[in-house]
């Protein structure tokens, strides 16, 4: 019998600590599969964030480092500059990258660091209990915005992919989603392209992945995917913003 699908060897056997239906697991798989397919699994060093995926060092079988909150691109810069032969990626959520770590990501892109960033945007702070993030949609309820985010009080959500694409040093920027099998396949291709760019030594790549948070959004896993499709995708349009 031919194997159609099998768990990637770049993932460990540890059970994921994410909630049922959280699409972090799907994005982990895509990163792991690309590491193996590009043959960089042995020399990859990942930098994890603070947030739900702060435990991702237990799940990726490659070398991992968990940086301070938002500082993953800064740590990855250091790793890549001391080990230029290694493959370095960061894996960050929206509370990490789009809020406390905005300076780090903007300047890593600005310097054209040869690293790849996977930015998981689920429009909320997951681990700490569903607080409003910079990416939370106007009107979306969060524990710190019980009546929904107010535009007058908090402004409109920040679009990271568009912002990073304006920076010269960023060579690949794409926004993808994992809400259905077709989009998962597209997401895998985008991550592959960002990784290839690093291997070619061209520069910084960022892939923004729209993700779900069924627990804090208050939906079942399946309905959370529908909510993502109906609400997040119209505000955060999918597509490529820059390809060197």
């Amino acid at each position: 019998m031919a194997v159609v699908y099998k768990k990637s060897i770049a993932l460990t056997d540890a059970p994921l600590t994410y909630c049922p239906g959280c699409t972090h697991g799907i994005i982990h798989k895509l990163v792991a599969e690309n590491l193996v397919e590009l043959g960089v699994y042995d020399k990859a060093i990942g930098v994890g964030p603070v947030g739900c995926s702060a435990l991702c060092d237990f799940f990726f079988a490659c070398d991992m480092y968990i940086a301070g909150h938002g500082r993953a691109p800064a740590v990855a810069t250091g790793i890549k500059r001391t080990h230029p032969d290694k493959f370095v990626f960061t894996y960050q959520g929206d509370g990490d990258l789009a809020s406390i770590g905005t300076a780090e990501i903007v300047h890593a892109a600005h310097r054209g660091e040869k690293i790849s960033t996977i930015f998981v945007n689920n429009a909320i702070y997951g681990m700490t209990g569903g607080q409003m993030a910079p990416t939370t949609l106007v009107g979306q309820k969060a524990t710190t915005a019980p009546y929904g985010r107010s535009e007058e009080h908090c402004g409109k959500p920040i679009r990271i992919a568009e912002m990073i694409a304006t920076i010269e040093g960023a060579k690949f920027v794409e926004r993808v989603s994992v809400n259905n099998p077709a989009n998962v396949r597209k997401a895998k291709k985008a991550i592959r392209r960002a990784f290839e760019l690093q291997l070619e030594g061209k520069g910084f790549g960022l892939v923004e992945v729209l993700s779900t948070c069924p627990t804090n959004w208050g939906y079942s896993a399946v309905n959370a995917l529908k909510w993502l499709e109906e609400n997040l995708i119209p505000y955060y349009p999918l597509g490529n913003y820059k390809d060197y």
């Binding site: 019998m1 159609v4 099998k6 990637s8 799907i26």
Partner: peptide, 20 residues
């Protein structure tokens, strides 16, 4: 039909799909 869709969408990577 061994399309693998279930395995692709499984966040916990617990499904292995084999084809005859």
């Amino acid at each position: 039909i061994a399309c693998g869709t279930c395995a692709i969408m499984c966040p916990d990577s617990i499904i292995t799909v084999e084809k005859e």
